[in-house]
């Protein structure tokens, strides 16, 4: 077979996307965690020091993500054009919510008002939801456009936020309380459930072979690092084992690490394009039409 034929054939199959690199992934990784942290902090009944630390960390995470994505876009000095399409673009909506998050978070830092923290938390959730919808709106990437990716992205952002909150409370107020630890383990459980539901649905509904290979390959590591180990650490802390603050801190870090591993894999490694297909093979000469071809996909 000629080289040109090989290359042309390969072009039809799904390919790993190369336009959104680690900088775009960082926006989802840090921004989602920051939004989740603001939301969790709003309901944690934090003292002044922990509140300041949590809000500051949440804003820094969101700012870090947006800065990274600013460095990725092709025309960074036109970045304000991002506000031009609120009617349908979730990227525009994310950018607007980000402004409001920084305003509400900044005021919370200045005043320490619980009501403002509540507002910042709600906006943080809005930011997280916008990010989930950005991914899901991309029809060219089957792993993203699946409707179950939305609750998964929101759940992992909240679990990461609860993880960061446990860390902040371990450092700033002598350890996370029972309520925060309960919230953390519930969110880890919800994320594990939604991850399984997402993966099962992706297999059932069909996805590029490359996507399924990557996601199935990372599943055992995610289960161990992102779900089992942090859940065990939380249970040990709740059971009153020695080093409670350290256990809560470790649980928080593991919950965050698992979520970041999941999002990096989803945005970078598992993001295979739709690829191109022919539903019917055309009639040639005196031959007959044939069944279609969809390179890089298993038949559903």
């Amino acid at each position: 077979m000629k080289l040109s034929t090989l290359r042309a054939a390969e072009l039809a199959a799904p390919k790993q996307q190369r336009n959104w690199d680690w900088r775009a992934a960082t926006n989802f990784i840090c921004g989602g965690a920051g939004g989740g942290l603001l939301f969790c902090a709003a309901f944690a009944g934090l003292g002044p020091v922990a509140m300041q630390a949590a809000v500051l960390l949440g804003l820094v995470l969101i700012g870090c993500g947006l800065t990274c994505v600013w460095f990725e876009i092709g025309r960074p000095w036109r970045a304000l054009n991002v506000y031009r399409h609120i009617a349908t673009s979730w990227m525009t909506r994310e950018a607007i919510v980000a402004l409001l998050v920084f305003a509400a978070g900044g005021l919370t830092l200045l005043t320490n008002q619980a009501a403002l923290l509540l507002l910042a938390g709600g906006l943080g959730l809005g930011f997280l939801y916008s990010q989930a919808r950005i991914l899901a709106a991309n029809k060219g990437i089957p792993a993203w456009r699946h409707p179950r990716s939305i609750p998964l992205m929101v759940a992992t952002g909240l679990a990461e936020g609860a993880g960061f909150l446990a860390c902040v409370m371990s450092l700033a107020s002598g350890g996370a309380g029972f309520a925060v630890l309960t919230g953390l383990i519930v969110l880890i459980g919800v994320r594990a459930f939604l991850w399984k539901a997402y993966l099962d649905a992706l297999v059932a509904d069909g996805a590029p072979d490359g996507t399924l290979k990557v996601l199935n390959g990372m599943a055992p590591r995610l289960l161990l690092v992102g779900h089992i180990l942090p859940a065990l650490a939380v249970m040990a802390a709740m059971a009153g084992m020695p080093g409670r603050a350290a256990l809560a801190f470790a649980a928080g870090i593991l919950a965050v690490a698992g979520g970041w591993f999941l999002k990096f894999t989803l945005v970078r490694r598992a993001a295979y394009t739709q690829g191109l297909a022919v539903p019917r093979i055309p009639v040639r000469g005196k031959g007959t039409a044939g069944a279609g071809a969809k390179p890089g996909w298993k038949p559903v």
């Binding site: 990725e72 876009i73 092709g74 025309r75 960074p76 036109r78 054009n81 991002v82 993001a271 394009t273």
Partner: peptide, 22 residues
């Protein structure tokens, strides 16, 4: 003159029709 090169459209296109040259 309006495009910022965010590549969101590249991801949204199921036909691999778009590209960005930096």
């Amino acid at each position: 003159d309006l495009c910022i090169g965010c590549a969101n459209c590249v991801m949204a296109c199921p036909y691999d029709a778009r590209s960005i040259v930096h």
